[in-house]
Amino acid sequence: MEKPRKATLVAKAAVLSVVVLAVAYPLLGVIGTSFASQTDIVESTGLVLWPDHPTLEAYRTLFTGGVVLRALLVSIGITVVGTVASLLITIGMAYGLSRRDVTGSRFMLMTALFTMLFNPGIIPNFLLVNELGLYDTYAALVLPTLVSAFNLVVLRSFFMNLPGELFDAARVDGAGDLRILVRLVLPLSKAVLAVISLFYAVTYWNAFFNALLYLDDSEKWPIPLVLRTFVLQGQSLGGTALGESTAPHQSVQMAVLVVAVVPILLVYPFLQRYFTKGVLTGAVKG
């Protein structure tokens, strides 16, 4: 093919730089500002990219307070328990339905897939959670989003694409279904399981509306709800030593944001290379 013209190359480079900056600037700015002192904030416009007088004061304020720390623990708990539960049930269902020769499996699959078409909506979900006695319990943050039909399809089609000879060989050796799953299938599926775990974990970590809807007691709040009242609505954090703290208000707000994003930033680089595989086995092949 012919060589692209110089003007085209420059234009492309310019667009890509703008795109990368548009994503990176706000994130770096939030991190920078969380370490900024009062002087840095007064001197800069908007966010502080590189504080000249960095300080950990904002984080000290957060972690002596209790509200943020407790919310973090709640979020971590929900994320860990939720992700493990979701994974176990999704794996079971995907594996159970991965053989087409089993009667009833098609019907069960359609039952799950059909839920992608409609969403019961806020009121019926709320009434159900109430009826089940889950209102104002942590279970209300996990059970209603336990299995994602999308993840189920991804995992099932991955299992179905594993070479059938492996299963035959294992069966000849006398291994049962469960043994095959644990010894053979799961070790071969590490990549796709990693992606699905990430999807589940992120859903639980970011869960905002369900928490707003189902939790009454602010002592039980996970981090997104604390973020909303403290950063978006600008209310003070009860129980923190904010009054006596020397940290600027904006730095403390940004520190809460950082605390809420950091877990995602930490796992992201390790799982990133599996995305395409994970998204595509489900989306393209259906």
Binding site: G92, G96, V102, S105, I123, P124, L127, L128
Partner: peptide, 26 residues
């Protein structure tokens, strides 16, 4: 095999189909 799928199936029925009854409220 299908036994493994039952907990997941129960989830879909309870949290996606049963709530539809809640539309009685409408």
């Amino acid at each position: 095999m299908l036994l493994l799928a039952l907990p997941g199936l129960a989830y879909f029925v309870v949290f996606h189909y049963v709530p539809l009854l809640g539309y009685m409220v409408a």
